[in-house]
Amino acid sequence: MVELNNVEQAVPAPFHRRRPWTCCCLIFFFLIVLIAIIIVILAFTVFKPKKAEVSVEKVELLNFKSSLGGGLIPTPSINITLAVDLSLHNPNKASFKYSNSTAMVYYYDDEVAVVTIPAGAIGSDATKTMSVTFIMLADQLVTNSHLVNDFLAGSLPFTTRTKISGRVKVLFIKRHVDILSQCSVSISVVNASISNTDCENKVHL
């Protein structure tokens, strides 16, 4: 009788008693897979990092003073204040954070003005307007060998470059973003005005 009782205790539980637990595990597993698929689809569609959009709204000459000194070699004296208004649009579903950036003005290959753009952020699907003001003084220009000829010709060519670097993090995806805006600006000496402007904007993601 003792051996018979031991045999009865070793018999496994009926299969139908384990079925609810098996079904719960399967349902839980399929839910996890479904959620993972939804997250992946959203990450590569709705929440996929997109390129920011940049445009130059306005290039304005705020101040222009010039004169031509006497002597055997005439020396121009020029003070220029130039303003560039940028519009930055962040189309992502997360904010775009950028670090301290720089904006520069070149007269040919010479850097004649530098402005620091403080770090900041552009909210989700938001647009931010940014105004950069450059002040160019005579002593920054007179050393350039082209100045006298350009001054006598009546037109001064400048190039403005604004570079903003940052990153956007959407869900678990981080992407570095470089925004570059460059404008070629010609300033008329006679009319003290901007005679020509040609801008190019690039975004690298």
Rank of each mutant, 00 (worst) to 15 (best):
M130Y: 00
K174A: 14
D178Y: 12
E111W: 01
F47H: 03
T143L: 09
D150N: 14
T197A: 10
A83L: 11
G71P: 02
F30K: 05
R175E: 12
L68M: 04
T127W: 10
T116K: 13
N90H: 02
L156H: 03
L31E: 09
T127Y: 08
I41S: 07
S195P: 02
V115W: 01
Y107T: 04
S101Y: 01
N92F: 05
H204F: 13
V112I: 07
A121I: 10
A121Y: 02
T160H: 06
D110T: 15
E8C: 14
C25L: 12
R19Q: 13
A83V: 00
V115M: 06
C199D: 03
I117Y: 00
E111G: 11
T102P: 00
V59N: 08
K51E: 15
N201P: 00
I164R: 00
C25M: 06
I37P: 00
G70E: 04
H89Q: 04
R17S: 14
K51L: 11
G71Y: 05
S131E: 12
S77V: 13
L141I: 08
C24N: 05
D110Y: 07
V33L: 12
I135D: 12
V56G: 05
P20C: 03
S155I: 14
T22Q: 15
H204G: 06
E8W: 13
L42N: 05
L137Y: 06
I39G: 08
L42H: 02
N79Q: 12
V46L: 09
K97H: 10
M104T: 14
S77C: 10
A94N: 09
K163E: 15
G70N: 04
K51C: 09
D85S: 11
M130V: 11
C183K: 06
V168N: 03
L62G: 09
D178A: 11
S131T: 15
G120W: 02
S181C: 00
S95E: 09
E57C: 07
I122Q: 06
L26M: 13
F15P: 11
L171G: 03
Y106K: 13
L42G: 09
L62Q: 10
F134R: 03
V54W: 04
F158V: 01
I41L: 11
V185I: 08
L141A: 08
I187S: 01
P12M: 10
T129F: 11
L68T: 04
L88H: 04
